[in-house]
Simulated assay, not measured.
Amino acid sequence: MREIEAYEFYREIGLESRLTAINKKLDKKMFYDFADINKKEKTAITKNIERMELTYLLTPITINIQTFINEEYHFEGIMFVTVSLKEGTTEKDIKVLEEVIHGALPHPVVLTFSFQSKILISTGMKRLSKVNKSTVVLETIHRTDWIVDVRGEPVVSDFLQSIQLFNLNFSNFYEFYKDIDMAVEAFENTKTIGIFKVIKEDEQREAHQSLIQQIHEIEQSITRFKTAIKKETQFNKKVELNVNIQQLIKKLDQIKKQL
């Protein structure tokens, strides 16, 4: 097994050979004082973060990529932020942390959580608020599973290959970041469809995501029915619930064939 640290990840995708790392510590106090966070979010930062740093900052000065500014998006650069987590950090804690960090920092962020020789990558597109153009709205956050072995699984290899710098769109920072975000989303979707599949065409990707959402909803319904069966004492109702589950499984198979 070839374990991966955050810096190994940056080296693997080609950042280390193109840019000089900044390694600038981001003080937690900065989030407390300037970010609009509540007590729960402040506690999550205090309790779970060992160290947080701006590892790389991509701007037109440091890399040959142009800014992208229109009425909806304002992409002047990209931040690669590394967060070392403390023992005991839960998935729920990570969800809070990524929302706070993505939401508080000005540029789009590639967020690398690091813990005991494994990493997790989080991305989230940001658009300008329609109400107040001086603020940004965080869209859907995407997140990989924990990556332990850099070459151990096909999904990990495919993911890392897809976000090699030479495979990304250098036309502007919006397209560059979108490529990374789509790759993270594709990694996330492997839990549902079993393969790593990046879909770049907007309409196809929206249709694909709609099917995945349907799968999630059906799987949740199946789980609820299974729980109900365990609690049910009447045989005829158990049979009825089982019939419902079989119908949902059949529907699930039909949807998966469309992916």
Rank of each mutant, 00 (worst) to 15 (best):
Met125Ser: 05
Glu217Tyr: 00
Met1Ala: 10
Ser210Pro: 00
Ile37Phe: 08
Ile141Lys: 11
Thr123Met: 10
Phe80Ile: 02
Asn48Lys: 07
Asn64Trp: 03
Thr59Ala: 01
Leu211Ile: 15
Lys42Phe: 00
Glu50Ala: 14
Arg151Glu: 15
Phe9Leu: 11
Asp181Glu: 15
Pro60Ser: 02
Gln214Tyr: 04
Ile255Trp: 10
Thr123Gly: 06
Met125Cys: 01
Ile61Asp: 15
Met125Ala: 03
Lys130Thr: 12
Ile45Cys: 10
Gly77Tyr: 00
Pro106Lys: 09
Asp33Cys: 03
Gly103Arg: 07
Ala104Arg: 08
Gln234Tyr: 10
Ser122Lys: 06
Ile22Pro: 00
Val239Glu: 12
Gly103Gln: 10
Glu98Tyr: 11
Val156Phe: 06
Glu41Phe: 06
Thr46Lys: 14
Leu211Lys: 15
Tyr7Ser: 13
Ile37Arg: 10
Ile94His: 09
Leu259Ile: 11
Arg151Gly: 15
Ile249Glu: 13
Leu168Asp: 04
Ser134Met: 15
Glu3Gly: 12
Phe9Glu: 04
Pro154Thr: 07
Asn132Thr: 06
Ile147Glu: 05
Glu91Leu: 07
Ser162Val: 11
Thr140Ser: 09
His216Cys: 03
Gln161Trp: 13
Gly124Met: 04
Glu206Asn: 14
Thr55Asn: 03
Gln66Pro: 06
His142Gly: 01
Leu57His: 07
Lys250Thr: 14
His102Ser: 03
Ile119Phe: 08
Arg11Glu: 07
Ile63Thr: 04
Lys238His: 02
Lys178Thr: 05
Glu91Asp: 14
Glu201Gly: 02
Phe159Ile: 07
Leu111Val: 05
Leu111Pro: 02
